[in-house]
Amino acid sequence: MSENILSEGTPVTSTSDVLTPVVRRSRADQIFRGIATTASVTTFILMGLIGTFLLVKGYDALRVAGWSFLTESAWAPDQGGAFGVAAMLPYTVQIALVALVIAVPVALCTALFITEYAPRKLRRILTAMIDLLAAVPSLIYGLWGLFYLQPRLITLSKWMADHLGWVPFFTVDDQYGTSLGLFPSSTFVAGVVVSLMVIPICTVVMREVFSQAPAGEREGAMALGGTRWGVVRDVVLPFGRGGIIGGSMLGLGRAMGETIAVTLIISPSFDAKWSILDQGSNSIAALIALKFSESSTFGISALMAAGLVLFVITLIVNAAASTVVSKSRSGASTEI
């Protein structure tokens, strides 16, 4: 200890002289880092390009329409008429909200069931089922919704219109009274089908957050003689609030972007309305899918602009969701 061989230029004046470890990477490591970084930058650029290209290609239409693009509800760009997303946007939101109203409670129950209630075997099966629910193509849900669910669901639509008509969303004005033929292809039916696609997204997020609820508190509540519901209410749910909100928002983003199932079910309407039960609905994504093949260059430019609006909205919703979720996740820790 007597011979302190100090390297030149590093006077040890105080102990707080912080050392910066010198890392010289080998050639292979430099290449490795280079490749990994390149891949990441590519991903980065790709994302930027999506917005850029939609903006560039949608610019023509946006210039013509100006701000009226957000307030105009007709869609006739190819006929030289006015066009805008003012009808599609509310419909898109309505469909997404219907989907969420169904999906969030179901997802919440499923997530709680998996983390808190289910016997082990059932837990494994149910987790697999939820994964499968996410893997089934939306096209398939659309087909099922159109051919199987819709004919059955409109009975419920009619019942709601008849008995709950005083709720603004359920009001169906028809001077001849309600008949079953009034209810297919509605926002409601589309929303119910979309909810199937939202359930797994919400469930996965909620389950993950719930399972991180501190075991100590959980057992503490149990040891005090709490019922299972008590534990859920006092420990799991408060802890998982971020996950519930974030998961729901992720679901919202997914629901607003859902295309094919909605396209199959709705019959396009260009007048926004409050009621969700009767025929006629729309969504930006469905509009693009339906109008694409019959549009001219300018029409496609208008569709690009609509796509841009959808893109920006889902981006904002999702960014907000990720922030909420990541805040409620605990970080990894190093064990020494």
Partner: peptide, 23 residues
């Protein structure tokens, strides 16, 4: 990058098609 990836996973599938069509 994590934020971007999160955002990207939210891109509606129709928008992905639109992007490739545009670009």
């Amino acid at each position: 990058l994590r934020i971007i990836i999160d955002a990207m996973s939210a891109v509606p599938s129709i928008v992905a098609g639109l992007f490739i069509y545009a670009a």
